[in-house]
Amino acid sequence: MIRTVFILVVFLLFSFSVNASDPLEKGEHKSWGFLGPFGTYNKSSLQRGLQVYTEVCSSCHSLKYIAYRNLSDLGYNKEEIKAFSENFTVTDGPNDDGEMFERPGRPSDHFVSPYPNVNAAKAANGGAYPPDLSLITKARGGGADYLYSLLIGYKEAPDSIKVLEGTYYNKYYNGNLIAMPQPLYDDGVVYADGTKANIEQMAADVTEFLSWAAEPEMEERKRTGIAAIAFLLIMAVLSFMAKQQIWANLKKKQA
């Protein structure tokens, strides 16, 4: 029995270390409300994060897997979403004349990208492609902590590091020289709900928003998980009792 437990523990420990981690300076760690088996997203933070994305990040970064209608998760109703989507211009077509045309966005549209394609994005940003942010917290080993650290990691470069033209020093980026200029500044955004918009606040809000963007199903997933595991544990207990009962029969016959 002990050996079994030992093997299970070794396996579990092993399974959590399988990914080769880059030797990066340990970033900031925040106790995000959405972590853990009972985690949920903070809707106010999500709404502020949407504002940061829209006003700061969307000039270079697309969010193509999110549709405007998905914003109902943030607590917006149909009218608010419709009004929001109409702020953006979508290229549609071809029309009956064979031409592409522009029209205001609709809830069913996906977030409009700042550039028509990857090459245009690279060309406008010195050859570096500003990645789409829909999956960014799943696409980076450190997840939300990494994203948050990066956004607040624009510090004064130490003398030992030469900052090349077209790059910027970031404490938490691998190699320390990142092509993205500092995106967040104190009071860069005026929050609709009046929260003070310092760098840490904006970084935390946009990180919460992008965590949701990468995993909008998270709350349902965890709820379902608790139900499924509870069901299976009950079933395990019952079937173990059944097994003991059936096998007791056998031991009796042996005696």
């Binding site: 399974s15 959590f16 399988v18 990914n19 088996p37 799943k138 696409a139 980076r140 080993g141 997933r221 965890k222 379902t224 998980g225 608790i226 499924a228 595991i229 299976l232 544990l233 079933m235 395990a236 079937s239 173990f240 059944a242 097994k243 059936i246 096998w247």
Partner: peptide, 28 residues
């Protein structure tokens, strides 16, 4: 019945991964 019990335990462990840490065995 013994296999059924084993299956229940296995599925419970499987569900921990599927529902709570679905990407831990994969690569970002």
């Amino acid at each position: 019945i013994k296999d059924f019990f084993g299956l229940s335990v296995f599925l419970a462990i499987f569900c921990v991964f599927v529902f709570f840490v679905p990407n831990i065995l994969g690569h970002p």
